[in-house]
């Protein structure tokens, strides 16, 4: 298969890799770049477990060709916050118990960040819409709503 050299800036780090034309960003991230926090839940764009930010916009990485991310900033949950410096959303997910099995959590936090970046004070309905692409089977969403609600304009750094 024809290989294309591309450069993706993953969480601020430039990663150079060769990809085929039809390889998805999800496949590339997981199988070539060891970016395991981006999860494979369905590969059909239904569940949102593979959510990443591309230039700040939340998308399903399973529905994006890797080559379409060439030269672009791709942010995962690890680029949103770290152990030393967690994002307020991560603090609130922790405090409110918004993560149970945790499998949907990276994608969920990523979508929530995109929501709050665009709308720092969303209503409950706007929050529901903001994470409408991310399924959670464990929490029933209540504590996820609570966690996102608690991070308002005042609390965000």
């Amino acid at each position: 298969m024809k290989q294309y050299p591309i450069k993706i800036i993953v969480n601020g780090k430039s990663r150079e890799i060769s990809v085929t034309a039809d390889e998805t960003l999800l496949d590339t991230l997981r199988s070539k770049l060891d970016v395991f926090e981006v999860k494979n839940g369905c590969e059909q764009g239904d569940c949102g477990a593979c959510t990443v930010l591309i230039e700040g916009i939340a998308v399903n990485s399973c529905l994006t060709l890797a080559i379409q991310a060439d030269g672009k900033e791709v942010t995962t949950v690890k680029g949103i916050g770290t152990d030393e410096n967690p994002h307020p959303l991560q603090e609130s997910f922790h405090k409110y118990g918004a993560s149970q099995c945790g499998f949907c959590t990276p994608g969920m936090i990523t979508s929530a960040k995109a929501l709050l970046d665009e709308n720092p004070n969303p209503s409950l309905n706007e929050i529901k819409n903001g994470i409408s692409g991310n399924f959670c089977r464990c929490t029933g969403y209540t504590k996820i709503f609570d966690a996102i609600e608690s991070v308002t304009n005042e609390n965000q750094s």
Binding site: D83, Q90, H94, P106
Partner: peptide, 15 residues
């Protein structure tokens, strides 16, 4: 185990 999950550190079966 909450922090690991929230920071994306937890390694599930496929990871």
């Amino acid at each position: 185990d909450a922090w690991d999950k929230i920071l994306g550190e937890t390694l599930y079966a496929e990871d």
